[in-house]
């Protein structure tokens, strides 16, 4: 009896210790970046051009990250949500459904660097485009489509059967039911899925090394609206080094006098952005949920 009670107390203490340890590590990581960044950080850092001799800024790469994010989501969201509707509403048991699920699982576990290689072979070499933002975005789409598909499917599946039955009983067709009874209820979950996927796009680097390119961007001229001009910051047919890739590159190449400061601040910006996406998805999901349920 004594031993059993002692074991219970010991186990409880160990589990608490593990939890406290892990949380402290996380807090330490965040604190490290905040403390290291504060002395050198200014808003100008977000918009200025990179420099080898002074701290400079991350303006172009931050722009590229946002640009790649929008481009990737434009490609991924329609396919992901429609595919999710299929999997939740139409797919039965069968070889086709199985093949889709297996494909989802496979892409989800293929290393991002391998997806990057694939993107290089198809969107860089085979198409003859070279390193382009579009090639990078298509690669990220391949990588993130299965995730968004799964998240949308889950969101749609959580809609209670009653909602469907009620609509079908009123004589609505299957699609009318999906469109007017199911989707409105599922939208908060779908939006949460979209934002979570977006956060992943923002942080991804390995898949972009060989697809969107590594070259340090030149000064961008935002008045150049020619979408086919590789010099225009608006063009999908240009090199687009993102913030994540930039952090890796500046470290592995060790260029510039302020690599350390720039990497710390860039990491903090990256963490803050990804956190904003995570928290944002919660908040947005919750807000939409309240809106949908009319509270």
């Amino acid at each position: 009896m004594r031993r059993v009670l002692a074991a219970d107390r010991l186990a409880t203490a160990v589990l608490w210790a593990v939890a406290v340890f892990v949380i402290l590590v996380l807090v330490a990581i965040i604190a490290y970046f905040v403390i290291e960044s504060i002395p050198t950080f200014s808003l100008a850092f977000l918009f200025a051009d990179p420099s080898l001799t002074e701290i400079g800024g991350i303006g172009p790469v931050l722009w590229n990250s946002v640009y790649m994010l929008v481009l990737t989501m434009l490609l991924t969201v329609p396919l992901g949500v429609l595919g999710g509707i299929y999997m939740a509403e139409y797919a039965g048991e069968g070889r086709l459904t199985n093949a889709i699920r297996f494909s989802q699982e496979l892409i989800s576990s293929v290393p991002s660097i391998v997806v990057g290689l694939f993107g290089f072979a198809l969107f860089v070499a085979a198409t003859g485009w070279g390193f382009t933002a579009l090639g990078g975005a298509l690669t990220l789409m391949v990588f993130n489509l299965p995730l968004l598909l799964r998240l949308s499917e889950q969101a749609i599946r959580t809609v209670p059967a009653d909602e469907r039955a009620a609509s079908l009983a009123l004589g609505a067709t299957k699609w009318q039911t999906i469109r007017h009874a199911v989707l409105p209820v599922a939208i908060p979950g779908v939006v949460t899925g979209i934002v979570l996927t977006a956060g992943r796009v923002f942080g991804e680097a390995a898949a972009l090394l060989f697809t969107a390119g590594l070259s340090t961007p030149t000064r961008y001229d935002f008045s150049n609206l020619n979408l086919l001009d590789p010099q225009s910051p608006w063009s999908p047919f240009r090199n687009a080094t993102t913030l994540s890739v930039f952090i890796w590159k500046s470290n592995s190449e060790g260029l510039g006098n302020y690599v350390h400061e720039v990497a710390n601040m860039s990491s903090m910006v990256l963490i803050v952005m990804v956190l904003a996406f995570n928290l944002g998805s919660r908040w947005l999901g919750g807000a939409l949920q309240r809106h949908v349920s009319g509270l």
């Binding site: 329609p78 429609l82 595919g83 509707i85 999997m87 139409y90 293929v110 299957k174």
Partner: peptide, 26 residues
């Protein structure tokens, strides 16, 4: 009437296409 079904199926099939292409190229 079946158009929605076919469109959504098409979207889902992109995943299979991606896997086939990926396996093929690699």
């Amino acid at each position: 009437l079946d158009a929605p079904r076919r469109i959504t199926l098409g979207a889902a099939l992109v995943v299979i296409a991606a896997v086939v292409l990926l396996l093929g190229f690699i």
